[in-house]
């Protein structure tokens, strides 16, 4: 494990230096890429709590990612054209202040995760995979056919939402906002995993019946993990809308759920930094392969299949094995 920890330090080091280098050498493109890695990493860390640590194979986390994105987009859209979002039961106007948007995103993602969790956690195994997928698809089709916010074409917000005393349109400043959230999310996840609640949900992954038999209400534990997981992914969705200044139904699509899952698996399941490494690997692959061939997804598919059939434990596990040989 020591090598993995050293590697994790290196990851943090790179996260601080690459964008600064991008700034110094006036290559804002690399800042944007790293921002994307960080945001997708947050989404993956959210999913990893449910999928990696608790064994809840959610194939519908795009629902939370997309909801976070749409809540951000809609609030900002209404702030721009100063129309009310709704006037009943209470008057609600839009906002372009991140300090207002984030709590609303967190609350609404948590609420959505609560509802989806309440319904889908009644099932297990394949049924759970498919019902989470179906809920995400439901939102996807809703977003496509709801004309008010751009429908299939998506919604542009033109200006990034604001934060007091920070110029969010500056790529480096916005990057550090995302990095700030990443560090908080990693910190929260680490705390959860090592808490007694964390012991409970990790035990559920191994044997739910036994956890039940010692008197823990596993349904409530799973529900809470699912809600926390969905909330974190929703937050990532909010940042993603701000990064692109655009939101479209494609982030609700099931391929998004699959991609978030890929981040978790590529990096290494149930490893704190795994999804971040997975997202970084994914983006680097997209950029390098994408520059050689239009069909880069073909090679991505091949790499994924090989990893699942033969490596099985993700990139970070490579750093764990070395230690065993050294012993």
């Amino acid at each position: 494990m020591i090598i993995e920890k050293i590697f994790n330090k290196w990851i943090l080091f790179f996260l601080f230096t690459i964008p600064v280098l991008g700034f110094v050498f006036e290559e804002p493109y690399y800042i944007t890429l790293t921002t994307k890695v960080v945001i997708l990493g947050i989404a993956g860390i959210g999913l990893n709590l449910a999928l990696g640590y608790c064994g809840l194979i959610s194939f519908g986390h795009a629902a939370f990612f997309g909801l976070g994105g749409y809540v951000t987009g809609i609030l900002s859209f209404h702030a721009l054209n100063s129309e009310l979002i709704f006037s009943w039961p209470f008057v609600t106007s839009g906002s372009s202040d991140m300090l207002v948007i984030w709590p609303i995103v967190i609350l609404s993602s948590a609420f959505l995760a609560l509802i989806i969790g309440l319904l889908s956690l009644r099932t297990t195994g394949v049924y759970f995979i498919m019902i989470t997928l179906a809920f995400a698809q439901m939102l996807y089709f809703f977003a496509i056919s709801w004309p008010n916010y751009g429908g299939e074409d998506g919604l542009s917000i033109y200006m990034r939402n604001s934060l007091p005393m920070v110029n969010t349109m500056d790529p480096l400043s916005f990057y550090f906002i995302c990095l700030f959230w990443l560090l908080i999310v990693i910190f929260i996840s680490a705390m959860l995993i090592n808490s007694s609640f964390g012991m409970a949900f990790q035990a559920i992954k191994q044997n739910e019946e036994r956890v039940k038999s010692v008197g823990i209400e596993t349904f409530k534990v799973k529900l809470l993990v699912f809600v926390i997981s969905g909330t974190i992914t929703g937050l990532a969705g909010s940042l993603y809308t701000d990064l692109n200044r655009f939101i479209s139904p494609s982030v609700l699509n099931w391929q998004m759920s699959g991609e978030i899952m890929i981040f978790v698996i590529l990096g290494g399941i149930a490893r704190l930094y795994g999804p971040l490494v997975g997202a970084a690997f994914f983006i680097v692959l997209e950029q390098t392969l994408g520059s050689y061939t239009e069909n880069w997804q073909f090679w991505l598919g091949l790499i994924l299949i090989l990893e699942i059939l033969y490596v099985r434990t993700g990139i970070l596990s490579l750093f764990e094995k070395k230690l065993k040989y050294e012993k």
């Binding site: 699959g258 997804q297 991505l300 598919g301 299949i305 699942i308």
Partner: peptide, 17 residues
């Protein structure tokens, strides 16, 4: 099931491309 979902998801990318 997780491995199956991911491997067949990867297969979609492979076959579509």
């Amino acid at each position: 099931h997780l491995d199956q979902v991911l491997a067949t998801f990867a297969l979609i990318l492979l076959l579509s491309e």
